[in-house]
């Protein structure tokens, strides 16, 4: 088919479209959904009893802030990149906070392993933990997918990766507020696995979602 013919076919029967809100507005919408999911989960499962004590521990507070910051920045970054004319540099925005968060998670895991040994690698407590992480991450990932589905399939993979990272990071914050198990090496490892599954799943399915009309 000739390009001129394609132009004629595209323009005939053109339907009006509602302009997509800008990336900042979309980011705010996603954060509202994320806060609602965390609030609902808190209402259903309750806050962990020792939350105040854990927050007094600077390492837990530091990790929660880093995860929250990584989530918010990754969401902004994903939504900026979903618009074709936004700078690719937006992709760099969540890297420092994510690096700090993942590094801290890994270091905590390693330290716990050295202190407690492999005896605390208990799969029974870890599988529900993973299910909790994924159950939390799924609505956040779906909300992100809904927001970017009308975006341009121009940078699908980075958008999907960053969207998954945003969902996984805020899931981690929710987990730290609610999960009753101590931050043992196993739990931290499962947190990491949950993040990988959420981000990997988004990277795999995200481009398909963005390809839909």
């Amino acid at each position: 088919m000739q390009t001129e013919e394609l132009i004629a076919q595209l323009s005939s029967g053109l339907t009006p479209v509602r302009r997509l809100p800008g990336p900042w507005i979309l980011a705010v919408r996603w954060l509202v959904v994320a806060i609602a999911v965390i609030a609902l989960a808190t209402a259903a499962f309750g806050l962990r009893r020792d939350l105040a004590a854990r927050l007094a521990d600077s390492s837990d507070l530091r990790q929660m802030i880093a995860a929250g910051l990584a989530g918010v920045l990754a969401a902004i970054s994903a939504l900026q990149l979903s618009f074709p004319d936004r700078s690719a540099n937006w992709g760099l925005l969540p890297i420092p906070a994510t690096g700090f968060w993942v590094g801290d998670l890994g270091w905590g895991c390693l330290r716990d392993l050295i202190e407690s040994g492999f005896d605390r690698m208990n799969l029974e407590t870890s599988v529900p933990c993973l299910a909790f992480i994924l159950g939390f991450g799924l609505p956040l990932s779906l909300a992100m997918a809904l927001l970017v589905r009308r975006a341009a399939p121009v940078r699908s993979l980075p958008v999907a990766l960053l969207g998954g990272l945003a969902a996984a990071s805020l899931t981690n914050v929710g987990m730290m507020m609610m999960h009753p198990v101590d931050a043992a090496a196993t739990v931290l490892a499962w947190h990491g696995l949950g993040v990988l599954i959420t981000v990997g799943g988004s990277a795999l399915l995200g481009p398909r979602v963005m390809g839909s009309p």
Binding site: L6, L10, V17, R19, S82, F83, R150, P153, V154
Partner: peptide, 15 residues
Amino acid sequence: QDALLTLHRVRATYD
């Protein structure tokens, strides 16, 4: 032609 088809699909994203 690919670009025209994409442009058509994402015309709502133009600000």
